[in-house]
Nucleic acid binder design. Structure first.
Length: 878
RNA sequence: GAGAUAUUAGCUCAGUUGGUUUAGAGCACUACCUUGACAGGGUAGGGGUCACUGGUUCGAGUCCAGUAUGUCUCACCA
């Protein structure tokens, strides 16, 4: 006996192992068409969260679909090394052991890091298996493994030689916590509550003051000028004067620059060229001194002369208090401003002047922009194209060096004032020898920094196939078919991959990009650790089954739209599994016979079911093409739950204790098998399990590779006729409920004889279906429906249910009148349209025909309703 | 500040070149239904002047303009 509830735990692990051991996930180039996806590599330190589940479920659906279609499906998994995040984790782990990073050599630190990576890294890849991800695990890549590292060095050197990569001294985004520079894309700006301090500076040689406004009083020790607008008459008298930096007592010039906004604050601006991007520009224009008052960790440096070694935010408080006591604070107001924080550490980013490596993006962007604008690389949803274009057209150079140890060490070596860039130290030395014939190996010093993690990720679609070395494999799988990722990394990753693609392969890296939405909670808040609103992904799988979770995620995630996660969704998925499971139990409980011929009813039901499957399948083709996966899934949900379980199985279900005809049984099994096939990409485990329990399968006859054959249907009339049957059945059931007639009581249905009704009755089995599901003992076709009963209209057919209790004629009249009013309104609107000459002239003929049909139908219903009302009124009087 | 995008049932969303019987689905809700697949269920039902104002058109949820509100991207004034 099969359990009354579906138990995903038993099933899922068993099938995953089976698929893997049969090698279904593996892919090697062959004659078939390739369908390839590269995974957006999760952080090697990461654990599975809701975003990963959504993203990877989608990829798995697409890959499984392609596999079923007979394509050579290849999904390449892997992880990235996440410089900042991983290094932070390792540092923390060492600190807990009592080891300081500063006490270790680079080599020692990296040993610890690799050890840590081997032990804890890549857990997420194991977790993806629980979700059902059918990746080709043999191809698992890591951005720092040998193949991927070689690609990184090759790319760096190549760009350098092509003059598309340079080293420059500029203002950068500094993360004082990670003590590294960040690219613009790694800084997240957000409005924060702060204070605007109005501080007065004394003018040298006078008792006069000038007041500036600043949010960062702690930077005052780094001031090297006060700037005002040249046309600002309020400050014209300051020409040639100097001001005294409060507390610090250093004299600084007053300068005139039209960058200054006269409307803001007091119209006077303190200039700190070392710690503000705009101030730095002003400083350059006026040849101002640059005083760097911060250490790399955000504490005050010796040049600050005050509060040495204390943190910038502590100093903000202390220094503003000093200013206040010294009488320099004019006032302090509450203020909201945009604060940039590090994406990885959340530390407030400190603008800082520093020497870094940059990629000259202007030289890479043109083909990448064009590809997306021309839909050579197609974006879903389309709206992302604008965002992409805007970024590409205003592209800034990419700062790729990071002051960390975990990552690809920059392949640049220095001697005296010369730089030698090469893929290996050996080659760099050879290069150096050409300029310095007597140079010794130890004299050549490699750059201390590593490269931005994204500098390896942007090569991912090429490097996972070892594409810099092996063109044959690359040419088979590349360009990949589709990239599935979040829109939050469109610049960090997607745009750069397109650029890298054109730079090194001459073509785009993927044909389509499907941007998933963010997973949020019911209240539309982002899922975050701080809020604690993110469910434990693995626990969800344990509680609801991977199929249930996949259903929950997919049923409600429109392309590009946010997924508002609610546990109700996965519950629905679990219930759906249970529904299918119980349909299986029902089938398995039937005994078959083939002594009698198959009934017309069952044959018709089977035809109808197959036709429904075929037309749903046709619709799904488009849903897949447009990535409307949630709609596709909901169609299948409806097809299985409503059409197959609620209608079809009820049609063919034998009476208690009776047997089912062998043919009918086989049809039911075949239909269910097909449903499993179609649903498999979405819910792989339960479909494979049911597929095998439905009937004995030969070796290798598995749902995961079952092909979907769409049989073009030519009997669409069957659907139409069954729809009428369903409509009549529903109406009868409704009358039953309203009249409180028991389900067991058999009723008689009268239908007014018309041509349409004759056709229905002529369809063998149609009548039996209606009788069975509406629980009727007879259907009577008659010219005269003057009986004691309740009428209803199906389409344009008048039907009546005979009742044996007294009819509430007045109640009936009210409801008939309501219906009549509705129909009258409907007919009026159609009539209005049709009596408009311009409509009849301008509209397409088939539209006009349709309107005429609408009118005729409406008029027919009005006729029926009017007659019925008259009949009842006559009864009431009589 | 510039640009994009959205606003349809209590909630989340469909509505694909303007005409598919005066708007559909899932969830939620209401009523009824307990022994033969399933209460993680069945049957039926209620619920929307398609944000607002104009315009184009024979015809607008669908196209255009404006308003309001929300979201996002980029750039920022210290």
């Amino acid at each position: 006996m099969i359990s009354a509830r579906y138990n995903p735990k038993d099933v899922e692990e068993r099938w995953y192992d089976e698929w893997e051991s049969k090698g279904y996930f593996k892919s090697n180039p062959d004659d078939r068409e390739a369908f390839s996806i590269v995974i957006p590599p999760p952080n090697v330190t990461g654990v599975l969260h809701m975003g990963h589940m959504l993203n990877n479920t989608i990829q798995d659906i697409l890959i499984r679909k392609a596999r079923q279609e007979g394509k050579n499906a290849c999904w390449v998994p892997g992880t990235d090394h996440a410089s900042i995040a991983t290094e932070a984790k390792v540092v923390k782990m060492l600190r807990e052991k009592g080891i300081k990073k500063s006490d270790l050599s680079r080599e020692e630190f990296l040993n610890y890091a690799w050890q840590w990576k081997e032990e804890y890294g890549g857990i997420i890849l194991k977790q993806l298996r629980k979700l059902g991800a059918s990746c080709d695990w043999d191809r698992t890549a890591f951005t720092m493994d040998e193949v991927r590292s070689k690609a990184v060095y090759k790319a760096f050197v190549d760009l350098y030689r092509k003059n598309k990569l340079y080293r420059g001294n500029r203002m950068v985004n500094w993360d004082p916590e990670a003590k590294t520079v960040l690219s613009n894309e790694e800084v997240i700006f957000g409005l924060e509550q702060s204070k605007l301090y109005h501080v007065r500076y004394q003018i040298v040689g006078t008792e006069a003051y000038v007041t500036i406004a600043t949010t960062r009083p702690e930077t005052i020790p780094g001031d090297t000028a006060i700037a005002v607008h040249p046309d600002d008459e309020r400050y014209a008298w300051l020409k040639g004067k100097k001001a005294i930096v409060p507390i610090i007592n250093r004299e600084i010039p007053i300068i005139f620059d039209d960058y200054v906004d006269r409307e803001f604050g007091t119209g006077a601006l303190k200039v700190t060229p070392a710690h503000d991007v705009n101030d730095h520009e002003i400083g350059k224009r006026h040849q101002l001194e640059i005083i760097d008052i911060f250490n790399p960790d955000g504490t005050m440096s010796d040049d600050a002369t005050v509060y040495l070694g204390e943190d910038r935010f502590v100093v903000r408080k202390k220094f503003s208090k000093d200013l206040e006591e010294a009488g320099h604070i004019v006032n302090i107001e509450d203020y909201q401003n945009n604060v940039g924080r590090s994406e990885r550490t959340n530390a407030v980013v400190e603008p800082r002047l520093s020497l870094q490596w940059y990629v000259d993006m202007g030289t890479l962007s043109d083909p990448a922009l064009k590809a997306v604008m021309d839909d050579v690389v197609e974006f879903f949803p389309k709206s992302q194209k604008n965002i992409y274009r805007h970024w590409m057209e205003n592209i800034k150079d990419w700062c790729i060096s990071r002051q960390l140890w975990w990552g690809h060490r920059i392949p640049a070596w220095y001697f005296e004032d010369q730089v030698f860039v090469a893929e290996t130290a050996k080659e760099a030395f050879k290069l150096a020898q050409k300029t310095f014939p007597t140079i010794q190996k130890e004299q050549l010093i490699q750059d201390e920094d590593v490269l931005d993690t994204w500098f390896s990720s942007w090569l991912w679609p090429i490097s996972v196939f070892d594409g810099f070395e092996d063109k044959e494999v690359l040419n088979y799988y590349y360009p990949t078919s589709v990239l599935v990722t979040g829109w939050d990394i469109i610049f960090l990753w997607v745009a750069r991959m397109v650029m890298a693609g054109y730079e090194w392969t001459g073509t785009f890296p993927f044909e389509k990009v499907y941007f998933t939405g963010m997973v949020r909670d019911k209240q539309r808040r982002k899922m975050s650790k701080q809020l604690g609103n993110s469910p434990d992904a693995l626990q969800l799988i344990a509680d609801y089954g991977a199929d249930g979770v996949r259903f929950g995620m997919m049923s409600c995630s429109p392309a590009g739209g946010d997924l508002l996660f609610d546990e109700k969704l996965v519950e629905q998925g679990r219930n759906f599994c249970n529904k299918m499971w119980n349909a299986l139990r029902l089938l398995k409980s039937w005994e078959t016979e083939n002594e009698n011929p198959q009934s017309d009813k069952d044959r018709l039901a089977g035809q109808w079911m197959m036709s429904m499957i075929a037309s749903t399948q046709e619709e799904l083709v488009r849903d897949y093409k447009d990535f409307r996966l949630s709609e596709g899934l909901m169609k299948l949900y409806n097809l299985i739950w409503n059409e197959y379980c609620s209608w079809y199985l009820e049609m063919i279900k034998p009476q208690f204790g009776e047997k089912i005809h062998e043919n009918t049984y086989q049809e039911a099994i075949d239909a269910f098998s097909q449903l499993c096939s179609i649903l498999h990409p979405f819910m792989p485990f339960i479909t494979e399990e049911i597929w095998h329990l439905l009937k004995d399968r030969s070796a290798g006859e598995d749902c995961i590779i079952s092909t979907l054959k769409i049989e073009k249907q030519d009997n669409n009339d069957v659907q139409k006729y069954i729809n009428t049957a369903k409509d009549i059945i529903t109406s009868v059931r409704e009358i039953r409920q309203k009249q409180a007639i028991k389900m067991k009581d058999e009723l008689q249905l009268y239908i007014l004889k018309t041509e349409g009704v004759d056709k229905l009755i002529a369809l063998n089995g149609w009548e039996d279906i209606v009788k069975k599901l509406a629980i009727l003992d007879d259907i009577i076709i008659s010219d005269d429906l003057n009986i004691n009963g309740i009428s209803f209209i199906s389409g344009t057919e008048k039907c009546m249910i005979q009742i044996h209790q007294e009819l509430d004629i007045e109640g009936e009249l009210i409801s008939l009148q309501k219906d009549l009013d509705y129909q009258q309104g409907f007919v009026d609107s159609v009539t209005k349209k049709l009596s408009n000459e311009r409509f009849v002239q301008n509209a397409k003929p088939e539209i006009v025909e349709k309107e005429q049909a609408k009118l005729a139908d409406g008029q027919e219903r009005i006729k029926i309703l009017t007659e019925e009302i008259q009949r009842l009124q006559a009864q009431l009087k009589g």
